[in-house]
Structure formats: structure tokens, C-alpha cells
């Protein structure tokens, strides 16, 4: 009984806050998605159109291309690279070598720089570094890798890798520093015990470090998927979804429909579909992938 009161106290504020902030707007958004509400008609309200917005979305010829970009490039590629690079950096910073070289602390602060940079600035800087006369092209030419400057954000072969690189620069530090914190919670005793058993460095990593990292990795993976999938800032600012519609993703489509075409009803429908996709992913992920790590202990 005392436990129940305690649990309620612990959870209630969060639940109320989240319901207040997400509950009504999401309900409202669902309603809007069945109307033809226009940004210009917010005062009057929209007319009920039933499932017309959803039908239009699923029949639009561009959808396959947009989904491919969203799933493969914006989400899968960027999330996997982000986790791998983040893990790599966290492990590197946690090594004895870093301490001996006196680089561990410096690097931790260095990681704060990209993280604290607002996305708009990150995009602006990288657009300039990736320019025809920019630092990247200059370096590549000097190193003899290419003899003509690459139009990184205009060439269809390089535009997605470039976009992913910009996202990584801005977001890898979050992963790296969070994993580093996990590494720091590994109790020394565990390593000592492993050493007594004569474990190799690899075995210590595999059987001591990794189990401690997994929960954080799983959470970071899940959240990174949500954030990437729903993110429109990098694509919008770096390429404007171009050339043509080559880098268009669901989130930029939402922005285009809502704020360029004024079609709030239609963009709400896209938003609902996105939420359903991510919701389904989240549930499956928690059930299938993270169950052992998170839920079993729950």
C-alpha cells in the first residue's frame, strides 16, 4: 500500500505533464487529418473530408521514393553509423591510452562543441566546407583523391552521404558522451574479478563492458530512430529536399504541405502515418529487441 502511494507520487507528475502536452495536440491533429483545413482557414476551421487525405497520400506517385529516402538514408544509415561511431568514440575515450596521452578530458569537451551547435549553424558551416572551393574539396584535391571539385550537395551520388555526414557531426556527441557515462558506471570489481579469472582485453569487453553498455545502446538506438525519422531540419536547410525532389523525406513533405501549400489537413495525415509507423516500430523494438535488456528487469 505504501509502495503504491510512492509509485503514484513518482509517476504522476510525468504522466500529467505528458498528457497535457501531447494528449490534446495529438487528438487535435488526428481530427485535423480528416479535414481539408488550410493554414489560411484556421479561423474558419476545415471541412470534414473523411479519409480523403490518407487516400491521396497512399496514391501519390512520389510516396515510394520519399519512403525509401526516409527509411534507408535518413533513418537506417544515419542511425547505424551514429551508434557505431558513437560507440567507437566512447570506447576510445575510455581507454588507458587516452589517459596516458592526456587526451580523455580534452576530447570530452571537444565533443560538446558540435553538440552545442544549433543545427542551422551546423548546416551552414558544413555547406561552406563542402563547397566547390571549400576546405573538403581543397583537401581532397591536394591529397590527389580527386582532380575536380565534387559538388557534394548537388551531385546525386554524394548528396545523401553528405547529408548523413552533417547529421552525424551534430548528433554523434550525444551518443558518445551518453555511452561514455555508461562505461563509467561499470564497477571496478567486475574488471578485477575478470582479471583474476585471466580474461583477455576482448573477453573483458565482451563479458563485462558490453552488458553494461547494452541498455544505453538500446535506448539511444530507439530514440535515434525516432529523431532521425521525424527530423526535417538537416534536409530542409542543406538541400531544401533537392535537387528536384531527390532528397525529399516524410518530414520535409509535412513541412512543404503545411507551410508552403497551406494544407494543414493533409500534412496532419502524413504526420499521423509517420506516428503510426514509429509507434509500431517502437512497440516491436521494445518487445523483440530490448525485451531482455529493459523489459525483463521491469
Amino acid at each position: 500500500m505504501r509502495d503504491r502511494l510512492f509509485i503514484t507520487t513518482m509517476l504522476l507528475p510525468t504522466v500529467v505533464l505528458l498528457l497535457l502536452f501531447y494528449g490534446y495536440p495529438i487528438f487535435d491533429n488526428l481530427k485535423i487529418s480528416f479535414t481539408d483545413l488550410s493554414l489560411l482557414g484556421m479561423k474558419r476551421g476545415g471541412n470534414w473530408v473523411g479519409l480523403a487525405n490518407y487516400r491521396e497520400l497512399f496514391r501519390s506517385g512520389d510516396l515510394g521514393h520519399i519512403l525509401f529516402n526516409t527509411f534507408i538514408w535518413l533513418t537506417a544509415t544515419s542511425v547505424i553509423l551514429r551508434l557505431l561511431i558513437g560507440l567507437g568514440i566512447a570506447l576510445l575515450l575510455n581507454t588507458r591510452a587516452m589517459k596516458l596521452l592526456r587526451l580523455a578530458a580534452v576530447s570530452r569537451f571537444a565533443l560538446l562543441i558540435p553538440w552545442a551547435t544549433p543545427p542551422i549553424v551546423a548546416v551552414v558551416i558544413w555547406r561552406f566546407l563542402l563547397e566547390r572551393n571549400g576546405a573538403v574539396n581543397e583537401a581532397l584535391i591536394k591529397l590527389g583523391v580527386v582532380d575536380h571539385p565534387i559538388a557534394f550537395l548537388a551531385d546525386m551520388r554524394t548528396v545523401w552521404p553528405s547529408l548523413v555526414a552533417i547529421m552525424l557531426w551534430n548528433t554523434v556527441p550525444l551518443i558518445a558522451l551518453s555511452l561514455l557515462s555508461s562505461l563509467q558506471t561499470v564497477p571496478d570489481e567486475y574488471y578485477e574479478a575478470a582479471e583474476l579469472d585471466g580474461a583477455t582485453n576482448w573477453q573483458k569487453f565482451r563479458f563485462v563492458t558490453l552488458p553494461f553498455l547494452m541498455p544505453a545502446m538500446l535506448v539511444l538506438g530507439l530514440m535515434s530512430v525516432f529523431w532521425s525519422f521525424n527530423n526535417f531540419v538537416y534536409v530542409w536547410l542543406a538541400t531544401g529536399a533537392g535537387p528536384g525532389t531527390y532528397t525529399n523525406v516524410l518530414a520535409t513533405e509535412v513541412y512543404l504541405k503545411a507551410f508552403i501549400d497551406f494544407r494543414l489537413g493533409y500534412s496532419s495525415a502524413i504526420g499521423m502515418v509517420m506516428a503510426v509507423i514509429m509507434g509500431a516500430f517502437g512497440i516491436l523494438y521494445l518487445r523483440l529487441v530490448a525485451r531482455q535488456q529493459l523489459e525483463e528487469t521491469l
Binding site: G242, Y246, D261
Partner: peptide
Amino acid sequence: VPIGTMWNLTDRAFGTALSGQS
């Protein structure tokens, strides 16, 4: 048609043509 919509569509169409996508 809102001018912003035509503006966007025109830019996209020119983008695909100028980049050689279509």
C-alpha cells in the same frame, strides 16, 4: 493556387531538369 505552391513546384521541376534527373 497559392503562389508559394507554384513557386515550390516550379523550383522542383527546374531542379529535376537542370540536374538531369528527367
